[in-house]
Design a protein around this nucleic acid. Structure first.
Length: 496
RNA sequence: GCCGGUGUAGCUUAAUGGUAAAGCAGAGCCCUCAUAAAGCUCGGAAGGAGGUUCAAUUCCUCCCAUCGGCACCA
């Protein structure tokens, strides 16, 4: 444990998004959470690789392309771009964006993993019998039927048998269970871990791993079996490996893969927990690869207490929000108001309360009062040992400790809350010291140094959450060469 | 149906086998450097019934409510 502690690598991924629709606020929640974690680790000095991307294959995307009058490939290019664009819109710091339709980067990796599983003897062919709905052009389950008919297409599904490849997932139930129990594969939060352990207790079933190519050609071909296309598991989950060079035979890719794998953290939604905590580990074990170290599971966002749905028409377009309120305001809402690891709610009322209360009245006003008080003084000499009061140090120390703890446990809303405790602490400090009434310029400077130091600590803690705002604060309250220069600028946030 | 979670102030959350904490909202006070911001004070809470214990919001049982997983949608 206690060997060279200099720079740890930290490989963090989000789920790759399915591109049959536009990004909504739920997609953004995940990216923003992962971004905050990635930035946090960079600030700690870790060498961070932050990966995201898009999942582009499958029948749904083929249908969505048809509806749009495009080829699957054209559709994928356009739709994927909507997700890629989130980077600039939300100021996300990912290093790489992988697309499952990428034949150069992704396909060799998926095919290599397939071969490994086959080599182990965990892939076998079996007849799959299911209810096929012509309207869906896909298999449906009993649950989709009303009076024996497909609810959407009002047709009785046909019973169809087809030969598919299957993966012997059942074989790995015990091993996965023990890795999770021992925290070798850590699942956060604990309720999600218990959920998956309960599932494992019942045992895993083998899963269908391919589709006949005649039905699904838009996907990765199964190696040595052109009649079949890979089903989502071996295709999509493999993105975590393909992005870092697994399956490529050049020297650089091999070094890269060795360096980054295993992933330190997969950030995913609760709907795909089972895939990441059961199927994915099963595949990795079969291929003799290391398991990811941890999986963080976030919840869903409701809108005004209701499930978000196109039918209700309450889907929140995150891009609209940013255009109206700015990226940091939206980031703040998602990170502060939504409990990370649980479901949360979005409402315009709460959004406004957060924006006005926390950002404008709290943070923005604090910076404004400090800079207004100190601007005319010019650069103020600053010496940490002499100038920073014990109360200031203690205030920051206490909050810093809680912040760290919450970041480590991925309770981002709590960590964010600690920053605002510090804002409040600073406001109180200024009220107590009444710098506006001080006539002694030495005393005034000392108070402003302490206030500035508190605001500087706020800016530091804030950086993973609201990077742009953090930078603005640092430009207005600028510590440089043992001086602090206060310069009143634009309001950080205007009240709504 | 099976399995699991949750139920704390008007709302959102926190800690804890021994006085239940905070933010927002509400009421009042106060300051005036600041974005009519900030600060202070106040009121207000453990779903229900049992049990274990000197002591239960915390542990156990049952009931009620609610959410989720099992059924390939962030």
């Amino acid at each position: 444990m206690a060997n060279s502690e200099k720079s740890n690598k930290f490989y963090i991924t989000t789920a790759i998004d399915y591109i049959n629709g536009k990004p909504h606020i739920g997609h953004v929640l995940e990216k923003v959470q992962a971004d905050a974690l990635a930035r946090y680790h960079r600030l700690k000095g870790d060498e961070v690789l932050f990966l995201t991307g898009t999942d582009e294959h499958g029948a749904k995307n083929v249908r969505a392309a048809e509806q749009a009058g495009k080829t699957p490939s054209e559709f994928a290019d356009e739709s994927s771009a909507n997700f890629r664009n989130l980077k600039n819109i939300f100021n996300l710091s990912w290093n790489d964006f992988i697309r499952t339709s990428d034949k150069v980067r992704h396909w060799p990796s998926a095919q290599k993993l397939w071969r490994e599983l086959k080599e182990t003897g965990d892939l076998y062919k079996k007849n799959y019998r299911g209810l096929y709905c012509v309207g869906h052009e896909a298999f449906v389950t009993e649950k989709d039927l009303v009076d024996g008919k497909c609810e959407i297409h009002q047709k009785e599904p046909e019973v169809i048998e087809e030969e598919n490849w299957f993966f012997r997932l059942s074989k790995y139930t015990k091993e996965i269970e023990s890795k999770i129990k021992s925290k070798e594969l850590r699942i956060i939060p604990e309720t999600r871990q218990n959920e998956i352990l309960a599932l494992l207790k019942e045992g895993l079933e083998d899963i269908s791993f391919s589709r006949p190519a005649k039905d699904l050609s838009w996907g990765v071909p199964v190696p040595d079996d052109p009649e079949h296309t890979m089903y989502v598991w071996c295709d999509a989950l493999t993105n975590y490996l393909s992005a870092i060079g697994y399956g490529q035979d050049d020297q650089l890719s091999m070094i890269n893969y060795k360096h980054w794998w295993p992933a330190d953290l997969h950030v995913i939604g609760k709907d795909i927990l089972r895939f990441h905590a059961a199927i994915w580990p099963g595949m990795l074990l079969s291929a003799g690869l290391l398991l990811p170290k941890s999986i963080f599971v976030h919840g869903f966002i409701t809108v005004e207490g209701q499930k978000m749905s196109k039918t209700i028409g309450n889907v929140i377009d995150p891009v609209d929000l940013v255009n109206k309120y700015g990226a940091d305001s939206v980031r703040h809402y998602l990170l502060r108001e939504i409990p990370s690891g649980e479901d949360g709610d979005f409402s315009y009322k709460k959004f406004e309360e957060r924006h006005n209360g926390d950002l404008a009245n709290g943070l923005g006003n604090l910076v404004a009062r400090i800079t207004a008080l100190g601007e005319k003084l010019g650069p103020i000499d600053f010496n940490f040992a002499n100038d920073i009061e014990l109360a200031t140090k203690n205030g920051i120390g206490r909050i810093f400790e809680d912040y760290e703890k919450n970041m480590q446990e991925i309770r981002l809303h709590e960590a964010s809350g600690k920053i605002w405790e510090l804002v409040s602490f600073a406001d109180k400090y200024i009220n107590d010291k009444k710098p506006w009434s001080l006539t002694d310029s030495i005393e005034l400077k000392k108070v402003l140094i302490n206030a500035s130091y508190l605001a500087g600590a706020v800016a530091n803690l804030l950086e993973p959450f609201l990077p742009e705002t953090s930078g603005k604060i640092k430009r207005q309250i600028n510590f440089v060469d043992s001086k602090v220069i206060l310069k009143k600028g634009e309001h950080l946030f205007s009240r709504l």
